[in-house]
């Protein structure tokens, strides 16, 4: 569990006579930027040859109509240790795929995207991940003593700094739950993370019940990606509440070589991950 004290403060805050409502707010719109979602994730024990990269353009904040997928770019990933190149094929819907990718733990990879005569480069190292040792359910744990929660256990390797990215998803949900963790407070220990849902009519959320199926993926990530995704997650879930830190422009690891000012959004990550599925009893 990430020690997000601000979330707790907010909970305490909410006990007072506060109230929330959705309002119309005028926001400005910046010039669109290229978004590179290049997540080469290798599930432990698989070949990892099938990979997908998404390119899109950013849109106005409240825009719901734009088709933002970007076609016509050339996308290439190179293993800088071996020199091997992987070309990603344009599917003309904003996605670019390959089935020849070869993941090698701790090797470095470089991404090159050429779009509109501008070249974007990013590099990243494939980080290994430790296994999930156990997935359980309980009632007494978590925030609420009466609600079901999912528990995930894994052993953090000692003698090194480790960074993790979690993706939780319950079948039928609109969105996954993302979380990040560094071993700063837990180095070398058995780490326990939990996911508990509350009954919340406003958000159409219901507590877990027997029969619900959930999936958890645990990714080993680089420190730089941790810094990026930590901020992304914090901003996504707080979005300007009183205890959130100053909202800032997120800068990933891809650089526009042609025109640095026209930097892209998104990130080029290369990770190993493990996945577990669990059905509540």
């Amino acid at each position: 569990m990430k020690i997000n004290i601000y979330v707790i403060l907010l909970a305490i805050f909410g006990i007072f006579m506060s109230c929330e409502d959705v309002i119309d707010v005028e926001v400005t719109t910046a010039t669109p930027r290229l978004v590179i979602e290049a997540s080469l994730d290798w599930e432990k024990g698989t070949l990892g040859n099938e990979q997908l990269i998404k390119l899109s353009m950013s849109t106005p904040y409240f825009d719901v109509t734009s088709d933002s997928g970007v076609s016509g770019a050339s996308v290439k990933v190179t293993n800088t240790n071996s020199g091997e190149e992987f070309l990603f094929e344009d599917q003309n819907d904003g996605t670019y795929t390959t089935s020849n990718f070869v993941p090698v733990l701790n090797d470095s990879y470089t991404l090159e995207v050429v779009y509109n005569n501008q070249t974007y480069l990013g590099s990243e190292t494939l980080m290994p991940v430790t296994d999930i040792t156990n997935v359980t359910q309980s009632v007494e744990g978590g925030f609420d003593d009466e609600l079901l929660e999912l528990n995930v256990y894994f052993n953090d390797p000692a003698d090194e700094e480790n960074y993790y990215f979690f993706r939780y998803y319950e079948e039928g949900d609109l969105f996954p739950l993302l979380a990040d963790l560094s071993d700063e407070f837990f180095n070398g220990n058995e780490v326990h993370d939990f996911w508990e849902k509350q009954d919340d009519e406003d958000n159409n959320e219901e507590a877990f019940e027997p029969g619900d199926t959930v999936e958890v993926s645990l990714y080993g990530i680089s420190e730089r990606y941790y810094n990026y995704v930590r901020l992304l997650i914090e901003q996504y879930y707080s979005g300007g509440d009183p205890f959130s830190s100053n909202a800032a422009q997120l800068r990933g690891n891809c650089v526009n070589q042609t025109n640095p000012n026209n930097y892209p959004f998104g990130y080029f990550r290369v990770t190993e991950f493990v996945k577990a599925s669990y059905t509540f009893e």
């Binding site: 930027r33 950013s58 849109t59 993302l178 901003q235 300007g240």
Partner: peptide, 19 residues
């Protein structure tokens, strides 16, 4: 305060970009 001036999709979520 700082408001968003755009959005983009990442990990299936709409991520705000800030001014």
């Amino acid at each position: 305060v700082t408001y968003p001036n755009g959005q983009y999709e990442y990990e299936g979520l709409s991520i705000a970009s800030y001014s």
